[in-house]
Simulated assay, not measured.
Amino acid sequence: MNRIVLWGSLLFLGEWGMYGLFRCPFIVPFVSCRNCPIITCPGRVASFFWGFWGIWLVIAVFFGRAFCGWICPGGLANRVVSKFASFKLPEESRQMLPYGKYLMLIIALWAWFIVGQPRTNIPIRVGEFWASIGLTFDHASDLWLFRTSLVLVFLAAGIMISAAWCRFACPFGGVLELFKRFSLFRVYKTDACTHCDACRRACYMRTRPDETNCTNCGDCLNTCPHDCIHIGRKKA
């Protein structure tokens, strides 16, 4: 079911994701679509834009970071690429690197609210999609090129380090990570957990249920030899 929902979501959100990464003139994509001059971007449609963020908020309230594990096209891309990832990070790095999401979040908030969400490339308003991407790169500022290259580097790193972007750098994931502790439902483990890490080995985010970077995707539900992983309202 998780895979069906993810691939279905890709049909609706994939184009917007490509626009946000490769053609959005703003530093922080997906949040200033109502002021964007690129008329072919799906985010310019009010019902699409507000509907997306409304659904995003509802999911966050009820299921925490489940958007990352069930709907995000970037999460799907990372999940696919993670099949090739074999590099295992030291335990110290696995504990420290997830804080990178919050650093990226702080930078995004600074760019959005303090700097004023500047346009850092010349928006190519119309034209064939891939040709427009080439023109965007030709006319973008160094700051936009750095932003886009940074995302691409993290996505490429996912070939070696599973879901590197989602785990260590995504600012939207950082927002959801902060608020998921208040969500109503989640995948969680009970006190019967022996830390055998069967769940972590099955997880593309390389984490345990209800811990840092858990996206409630459910991949771990049938992996526990002690049947201590459940989904629902966690008892206090």
Rank of each mutant, 00 (worst) to 15 (best):
N213V: 03
L135D: 13
M160R: 14
Y19Q: 06
F26H: 07
I114Q: 01
W70M: 09
I27Y: 08
F154I: 01
L143W: 14
L221Q: 03
S132P: 02
Y188T: 05
R206G: 13
L176R: 04
G64M: 07
F113P: 00
A163M: 12
F172A: 14
D219V: 09
L89V: 08
P209D: 11
D210T: 02
W16F: 01
C193G: 09
F63S: 02
V175D: 02
F182V: 14
G134W: 01
L105T: 12
V5M: 04
K234H: 05
A156I: 12
F87W: 13
R65T: 00
T212G: 04
P209Y: 08
F87G: 02
D138P: 00
F168R: 01
H139V: 13
E91D: 13
N78Y: 00
T215F: 05
C199T: 00
C199P: 06
Y19D: 01
F52V: 08
F48P: 02
D191R: 13
V151L: 13
L89P: 04
L103D: 03
Y102L: 14
I124C: 08
S162L: 02
F146V: 09
T194V: 10
V126G: 10
F179L: 11
G64F: 04
G116L: 02
K189A: 12
R233K: 15
R119E: 14
H195P: 00
K83E: 13
A164C: 05
L176M: 11
D227V: 12
